[in-house]
Design a protein around this nucleic acid. Structure first.
Lengths: 145, 145
DNA sequence: CTATTTTAAGAGTAAATAGTCTGATTTATC
DNA sequence: GATAAATCAGACTATTTACTCTTAAAATAG
């Protein structure tokens, strides 16, 4: 079970943060990313292609090729990545799956979940990838392998 | 995509709340539940059997048989149901899937997610099924079909 | 121009999740 | 006891998600 986000989305989040830890413009190969993050090679390749098509990354073939952020890390949030890979369906569905659940015909946790949903959204937008990459470089943080 | 909870778990939540809307001890058939909640018959049958094995429901075969809550609705929370069907893994995993993420080696949203996780837990335990069934009976609430 | 290193693309496979079917068993009623 | 109405059990199928493989194409360096 991969809670909240799909596997591809989790991998995308990790990969983009990893790229943000590099100097701006520096390119990183799939090989390096999959080794550092322990993600299956060809699977991550697909995901990075997807992020490239969606305009979040740029790619270059050949030796010294690889992937880099298409825009400054400061302008990217986790939400951009989630939006690109999983979409924003989680902002809409009833948490218990009631088909009729809606604003004027709510289920009994509709309002609590609405608040939580907002908090999740806030978690995804309140900090940018540059700040997060800064964290990850510190020894007390996890992720880079 | 069935956010946060699996399909079987969503169906279980719906079914248990539906049962809590009945008079204590009254038995309800799979047929009635699937008609009211629009859930596939045989699939819900499996889920109810599971909840019965886990001790949340009691079942009776034969005409006038069906399912009922094994204990007073006041003593059941959504968390009991989630625990029985999906387990509590969502309280443990890193939201971005970082393998190394933990208390003393956190990812950059570790703390925000920890708070959110607690709020989700609170949403699941702060009200019991009796209260929620009470809500659902009111015309402005959704669920019973 | 050739060899090498990288991504691109698309088909294919595997595993997990969701949902179905059939037949047996239990219980109540006539 | 026979019949009917319900759950129980387990095998089966379908769909979605996760992951792999192969070949092509682009870029660099010699």
């Amino acid at each position: 079970m991969s809670l909240l986000f799909s596997r591809p989305c989790e991998y995308a989040l990790q990969a983009v943060i990893y790229l943000a830890m590099k100097k701006e413009g520096e390119r990183t190969s799939i090989r390096e990313l999959t080794a550092a993050l322990r993600i299956p090679y060809h699977f991550l390749a697909k995901i990075l292609q997807d992020l490239t098509r969606k305009g979040l990354l740029s790619s270059l073939k050949g030796p010294a090729g690889g992937f880099a952020l298409e825009m400054p890390a400061k302008e990217i949030t986790l939400f951009h990545i989630v939006e690109a890979i999983d979409g924003v369906e989680f902002t809409q569905r009833c948490v218990m799956g009631f088909q009729e659940c809606s604003g004027n015909h709510p289920c009994s946790v509709h309002d609590s979940w609405a608040e939580l949903r907002d908090s999740i959204y806030r978690m995804l937008v309140e900090r940018n990838i540059e700040e997060m990459a800064g964290d990850m470089k510190k020894p007390e943080y996890a992720g880079a392998g």
